[in-house]
């Protein structure tokens, strides 16, 4: 029986690292540790002696992590990224998903692949959730602005709610703008002028 793989996830985003850890626990019997900052990482890696280190590719501190991981000292065995060149399509997909993986030398490919694939799936899922959340937030704030602009038009021009909305829509069409942009313009103008 093979020994339990030790995985370290370096990610400052707590929500995402939760999702990755969850995914890895479902996928197999792994020993997973999450580290969230550069501080003290060399000592922690020395203690943990991980087989695989997963890092958010887009982290601004990635160069710092890499210096620490690849420097002689923290890990007894040298590390390389990913598995081997034969599977470059998988590596490209992982990079595009935002996953970078450092693997200690000598680890067999069939043990690494499921880990990287799980991390990729979770990164994608997280990115999707985040995009949905951002879109929802934007939609909500735009709706608020449109409501505010409508209110201002009703008050200042003595319009009904329907008339105010019709005016916003007509202005947007005439000026080639989006309704939330017109609303924002009205709010800014009123704030500046009054």
């Amino acid at each position: 029986m093979e020994s339990q793989l030790k995985i370290v996830v370096v990610d400052a985003d707590k929500d995402r690292s939760f999702m990755i850890v969850d995914g890895l626990r479902e996928a197999g019997d792994y020993h997973v540790t999450v580290l969230d900052s550069v501080t003290g990482i060399a000592r922690r890696l020395k203690e943990l002696q991980p087989d695989i280190i997963l890092i958010d590719l887009e982290s601004p501190s990635r160069d710092s992590f890499e210096q620490i991981i690849t420097a002689t000292g923290p890990l007894e065995r040298p590390v390389a990224m990913f598995v081997d060149q034969s599977d470059s399509q998988m590596m490209k997909s992982a990079i595009e998903a935002g996953v970078s993986a450092y693997v200690v030398n000598g680890l067999r490919k069939n043990r690494i692949k499921p880990v990287i694939e799980t991390a990729m799936v979770r990164f994608h899922k997280f990115a999707r959730l985040k995009a949905e959340l951002d879109a929802t937030k934007t939609a909500l704030s735009q709706r608020k602005q449109v409501d505010r602009a409508k209110g201002l038009l009703m008050k200042m021009r003595g319009l009904s709610e329907e008339e105010a909305y019709a005016l916003l829509r007509k202005t947007a069409m005439d000026k080639g703008m989006r309704i939330p942009e017109v609303a924002q313009g009205i709010i800014t103008a009123v704030e500046v002028l009054l």
């Binding site: 160069d63 470059s88 490209k92 990079i95 970078s100």
Partner: peptide, 15 residues
Amino acid sequence: ERSWSSIRDKLAYGV
């Protein structure tokens, strides 16, 4: 890109 490692990896793997 936010890091030189990302530049290197994305160039190496054809992104």
